[in-house]
Design a protein around this nucleic acid. Structure first.
Length: 455
RNA sequence: GUGAUUGUAGCUCAGUCGGUUAGAGCGCUAGAUUGUGGAUCUAGAGGUCGCGGGUUCGAGCCCCGUCUUUCACCCCA
């Protein structure tokens, strides 16, 4: 037998880690609910026809495929070299929550009240190379509104982001872009198919400098004239309004580009009414995520906490005008965001930002002195639990030292010693494990004693 | 997917030029202490040196493969 192991990029979670993870999930869940979002779940696996082609070439490569049940090898032998992938696999693990949601909406369109606000907190799988903050199995926490074009939805989502990170007390920065602005840029320089190349190159400005960016654009077959037009965009800076002003000048001939600017202004001004002093949102035209389906706003949140070096993306999202179209329900617009719980965990961990959860586990342990005593304690424990005190009775009449050590390790703050003396007198000996003090407490007052003594 | 990097006790890590029986700290178990945890002392258990192959009289150490760790690119939460 070799040593047991888990697959690359996956993790076990200890009780302590789960307390912290649930804190994150519960916080996000409560904010979603507060905004009227309702929870759904979808299956771990989907048909490949649902998943494939939705995430671009890269996404298809990173998708986990499930071998058909039955004898795949026999199939290969039977069909020979002409065997098709679809003979071997027709299901895959979900790669994100948005595409399964779109499928869900199409399948349940007659039962859904639009605009539909749904949230979904489930793991997704990607066959990516693991690194810090990058896992092969991780949770996404999605909130989407589908069936409404209103930009107020974008504003809702932005304010959800602010609420979540305020509650978690994580420093953050929201980046906002608009696919229509990117389309406008491509239109103005006459190279619509080059949007991705352009944004990727511009994004490197801080790292490699203006000249190298131009060089890279040239290597992507952009004309010198186009690069000259792009220059004010590459060097875009200042306040959000200054950036948008520069953009509207460059994009004045592009209807779609101007539409994108108008949308962004509208979102920003509504947001500013809600958070007058806040500077959470920054317009950033290098944000080019999800270009395969985003059509309007593009949102990304980066960790920006002085206590943590983590600066990667902890939340992302955007608007897709026609996501359900590919499943046969055209012209339904959606907008959504997705929190990366695992990365938020990493940031909070590094920042030391988790609250103390010691009071959510066992508060009282009954030491087991033997059969009769244990039976008596079991009854007392039942009362304690009914009174809301998290209680355990040590299951074996092991040595005191062992039972005390157990309480110590589990950080159980109170230990009750109930032997024959206590059983006859009805006075329970309660030891405070932090101070070491011991008190005699009437059995009937035990729960109030525990509740009134914080330890 | 490309290029680096890591792996020795439960954990963190030593291990010289390739040379006898692979070590330490912490943790664990037992005792000192039969109704009292943490501190101290004593004793003890615990190893396929990631795995498989190769070179060598001899491999934890060198070579190849593989898995794993971390990192960069790419992409992303």
């Amino acid at each position: 037998m070799s040593k047991p192991a888990i697959p690359r990029g996956t993790r076990d979670f200890s009780p302590e880690q789960m307390r912290r993870r649930n804190y994150i999930f519960d916080t996000i869940r409560s904010v979603f609910a507060r905004y009227g979002f309702e929870q759904i779940e979808t299956p771990t696996m989907e048909n490949l026809s649902t998943l494939e082609g939705k995430y671009g070439e890269e996404g298809d490569k990173l998708m986990y495929r499930i071998l058909n049940s039955g004898r795949v090898l026999d199939k290969i032998k039977e069909v020979g070299p002409n065997v098709k992938i679809s003979d071997l696999t027709e299901k895959g693990l979900r790669y994100d929550l948005t595409v399964p949601f779109a499928r869900f909406v199409v399948m349940n369109q007659n039962d859904i009240a639009f605009p539909f606000r749904r949230y979904q907190i489930q793991p997704v799988w990607r066959a990516d190379n693991p690194q810090k903050g990058r896992y092969r199995e991780f949770y996404q926490c999605d909130a989407d509104v589908i069936g409404s074009d209103s930009l107020l939805n974008e504003v809702d989502l932005l304010s959800i982001i602010v609420d979540v990170f305020k509650l978690l007390n994580v420093g953050f920065k929201i980046k906002l872009n608009n696919r229509k602005i990117l389309a406008g840029i491509a239109e103005v320089i006459g190279a619509p198919e080059k949007i991705i190349d352009i944004t990727v190159a511009i994004d490197k400005l801080d790292k490699i400098g203006l000249d190298k960016v131009k060089e890279e654009l040239r290597s992507k077959d952009l004309s010198d004239a186009a690069i000259l037009k792009l220059e004010p965009i590459i060097l875009l800076s200042g306040s959000n309004e200054q950036k948008l002003a520069t953009l509207s000048d460059v994009l004045k001939s592009s209807e779609i580009g101007l539409k994108g600017i108008e949308e962004t202004r509208s979102i920003l001004s509504s947001f500013a009414l809600l958070f007058p002093q806040a500077d959470h949102v920054e317009v950033d035209i290098t944000l080019a995520r999800g270009l395969n389906y985003y059509t309007g706003a593009i949102i990304e949140v980066k960790a920006n906490d002085p206590r943590s070096k983590f600066t990667s993306s902890i939340c992302g999202g955007g608007r897709y005008d026609d996501l359900t179209g590919i499943f046969g329900l055209p012209n339904v617009s959606g907008v959504g965001i997705s929190f990366g719980a695992d990365r938020i965990y990493d940031v909070l961990e590094e920042a030391g930002g988790f609250p103390d959860f010691s009071t959510v586990s066992t508060r009282l342990l009954f030491v087991n002195f033997g059969e009769q005593e244990a039976a008596y304690c079991l009854n007392l424990a039942r009362t304690m639990r009914n009174d809301g005190v998290f209680t355990e009775v040590y299951p074996d009449s092991a040595k005191m030292k062992k039972q005390m050590t157990y309480a110590d390790k589990k950080k159980i703050p109170f230990v009750a010693l109930v032997g024959s003396n206590e059983m006859t007198s009805g006075m329970i000996s309660v030891k405070n494990m932090t101070s070491g003090e011991q008190h005699q407490v009437p059995a009937g007052e035990l729960s109030s004693f525990i509740k009134n003594h914080n330890s």
